[in-house]
Amino acid sequence: MILDQVEILSRLILAILLGGLVGWERESHSRPAGFRTNVLVCLGSALIMIVSIKFYTLFQASRTNDPGRIAAQVVSGIGFLGAGTIIREGFSVKGLTTAAGLWAVAGVGLAVGAGFYFSSISATVLIIITLTILSIIERNIVQNGGEEALRIKAYDQPGQIGKIGSALGDYDVQIIDVSIDHIDNEPNIYINLRVRLPADFEYSQVISHLTQTDGVIQVELKDNSS
């Protein structure tokens, strides 16, 4: 396969467009790897695949020459970049979806670089569907399962989490995960809770009860998307 300059440029531009589509979705949700990151991953992967193909055409006489050897390093190397988007928050881990998205975008870039246009475009569409439509379905499943995320603003004083836990226990609300945010030069703390609600749960009553708890300033629902 001989790649001329127009074909190479076309593949690189397509990689930018496809990576940008996925990056735009991630950017709109303020994820660690946003628009530019996804564009660069897809573009870089496409370039590496093009270089691999060019090497193969230049050194076809060599039995050890394999166009997939250089490209294969993208699959393993993207793991280091993906690991940087994974964040541990309290007892939970966030950023796995973004890391998996980067890995998938790298695959799209390799496909574009190899000239597999139908595969790369189809994969991009499916990636975006996974990150949008399936995300909505996932949130509905979580909500139907009786789980909610709460963010509580409270005074920074001893035993505060215990008081909140006791208030939730009065309504048989189970705490699944908890983390605390400290803001510089602010005397308050922000407690993030992921809770499982009983079948007869009435959110307004619990909010009212938590607000009246000593030391609690504000209670609000937190976006549970990932």
Rank of each mutant, 00 (worst) to 15 (best):
V75L: 12
A149T: 08
L40M: 09
S76L: 06
G145F: 13
V105T: 15
G146Y: 06
A72G: 04
I121C: 12
I53W: 00
N65P: 00
E89R: 11
I133G: 01
L102P: 08
I136D: 08
S52D: 01
I128M: 06
F55L: 15
M49R: 02
L58E: 11
I133T: 14
W103Y: 02
Y56T: 09
V51N: 00
E138K: 14
R63G: 09
K54S: 13
F91S: 15
F91Y: 10
I50M: 14
V108T: 12
I48G: 01
V74A: 04
I86S: 08
L96Q: 02
V74S: 02
Q143N: 13
L131N: 11
L126P: 03
T132S: 14
Q60R: 10
P67A: 09
N140F: 15
I129E: 00
V75A: 07
W103Q: 03
F116N: 12
E89P: 01
Y56I: 00
P67H: 09
L47W: 04
I70F: 04
A114M: 12
G107E: 11
N65A: 15
A100V: 04
R88F: 10
G115V: 03
I78N: 09
L134W: 12
I70G: 01
T124G: 04
G84V: 07
G145R: 15
L110C: 09
Y117P: 00
G101E: 01
L126Y: 09
V39P: 07
A61V: 08
I128A: 03
